[in-house]
Amino acid sequence: MLSPGAELSSESDKSADGSTDPSIEHDDISISTSPVLPHVDASEIGPANLSLSGVTKRFPLGRNDTVLALDDISLDIAPGEFVALLGPSGCGKSTVLRLLCGLEEPTGGDVRIRGCHPSELVADHRLGVAFQDHALLPWATVADNVALPFKVAGQPVDNDRVRSLLELVGIAEFAKARPKQLSGGMRQRVSIARALALRPEVLLLDEPFGALDAVTRRRMNLELQDIWSTDQITTVLVTHSVEEAVFLADRVVVMTGRPGRIQTIRTPGFERPRSPELLRSPEFHELVDELTIALDEEPA
């Protein structure tokens, strides 16, 4: 097995020469204003690149004790790439996500989005996030929840955008409903629609479908793929489902826990758009089995 570092550098080469870069096939249908160029001007709207270099994270544990949650995580994510962080509970994959959205600061190393601190993207309202718990405001209607990012950003609410997002995630007829009137799957859709409201450059998803049944989850995965390929947002999905990771991602980053490290990175090079038939193909199952075994391997 290659070391994480070696796997990484070969990956970035590949995406540079475009052999596995999904953006090639999406450029024709892309509605984003700027093409993905090697040197993106920071002021330009378009998918951003993310980088974690030598990131460690310690959490305080009692008075003089700390626990190492992440150990030397290095990962470069190309603009428009879809990366899945796969790992068992407690491996620190959610911590990686919280570092990327600036909710936590690394103890060591550097987290950059387009070369800047994540807080700069946050301050520009250019980051979308959805958590496992939908975290919708219970007093606001579905439409108002999706409009929240506009209000927080002090922008006039683009009602057409809100409506088209609700149509995109298939809950337009529930626009006036309150979250508690919806099923778990519908709430998750609202949560994702909210994350997309301001056409973010980066979409961070922390187990957004973790609480859903298998059927709903598969349907949501298909929808998410559509959304991602339409807007071409750099996306990081944290999940513990191997199938979900392999089905959706350009690269699957497998993490091990205590402390969290990158164990291996795989590239599901399946053609896009990926259809539900892929879930039944032998190649798909081969990669899923391989990653499942990788997940089970406990480092000595």
């Binding site: 959205c101 600036g102 909710l103 946050v122 301050a123 520009d124 309202h125 980051l127 996030v129 958590f131 718990d133 975290a135 405001l137 929240l148 990012p149 927080v152 950003a153 961070l204």
Partner: peptide, 13 residues
């Protein structure tokens, strides 16, 4: 809810 808090923070509030 701390998660609501996080969502608002990440939205840049």
């Amino acid at each position: 809810n701390p998660l609501h808090h996080d969502v608002l923070t990440v939205l840049g509030a």
